[in-house]
Design a protein around this nucleic acid. Structure first.
Lengths: 131, 131
DNA sequence: TTAAGTGTATTATTTGATATAGTACACTTA
DNA sequence: TAAGTGTACTATATCAAATAATACACTTAA
């Protein structure tokens, strides 16, 4: 379910956060689903339990999961995301950065738009989204 | 011209690389322009000359600038970008990640498209001086 | 030729985030 | 009670990033 790249420059706990959010965004994990326990996932991925715990704490901070002592950790209902303003601003800046990179790669606006559309299939908008 | 965030999680040399590329993408810096010398920029930003040198080496690796021993460092003509395949694939993956984040922020496809368009106004319409 | 200015290389050191290891605690469920 | 849950704590190791100091090779202008 989660695959790590040990040689990656991005830390393990961050890879877990990103991949878990991707599973939720793609509806592979849904609200109420139980995620693997800290000890289970750590033994599956051959990493330290503390590393998994750190990832889960970050996911809870972002409102993706909820942990209940003694019971486990579960996917939350989609609701008003936490720290929305900061995260939207961060999203803006990262899009700006990617645009700069696209420019240096010689891409046109149309080419960039097409790449964005390919990447953003998972975004909902019900009725006139041509898929 | 370049502003650093010392508390940022992204390293100083990377901030220099990104901002220099942004200046070029926005045509604030143009081909042939001389960039500040390693010692000048390091004293302006109050950082170590080695850090500036590392940033310049990365920019040269990406084909953005060219350094000439004893003379200085200059913005290159836009041409076929180096390591294009890898960089395009990296761009794809980052767009995928940003899409996941947009989904978690409750954005629709239309809202995301609009944010992309705002960020990508610097991209050309279908023609780019290159090759 | 000399002096100042260019980028670069080298070695040593410090700092902080990341990850691991081991242990312990509080809670829930069967 | 026993097993399973998340969490807290201390200690340690590793690595990238940044600094510091010095030296080298080259170019340009006085």
């Amino acid at each position: 379910m989660i695959q790590l790249q040990q040689r990656s420059s991005s830390p393990i706990y961050e890879q877990i956060v990103e991949q878990m959010k991707e599973l939720v965004a793609k509806d592979i994990m849904k609200a109420g689903d139980k995620v693997p326990s800290v000890r289970e996932l750590s033994s599956t991925l051959l990493i330290n339990p503390n590393t998994v715990s750190k990832a889960y704490q970050e996911l809870e901070r972002q409102g993706v999961i909820q942990t209940i002592r003694g019971k486990g950790t579960f996917i939350l209902e989609p609701s008003v995301p936490r720290m929305a303003a900061e995260r939207i601003e961060a999203l803006r800046q990262e899009l700006q950065r990617l645009t700069v990179e696209a420019k240096h790669l010689g891409m046109t606006k149309a080419q960039f738009r097409e790449m964005v559309d390919e990447a953003s299939h998972m975004l909902g908008e019900g009725y006139h989204a041509a898929d």
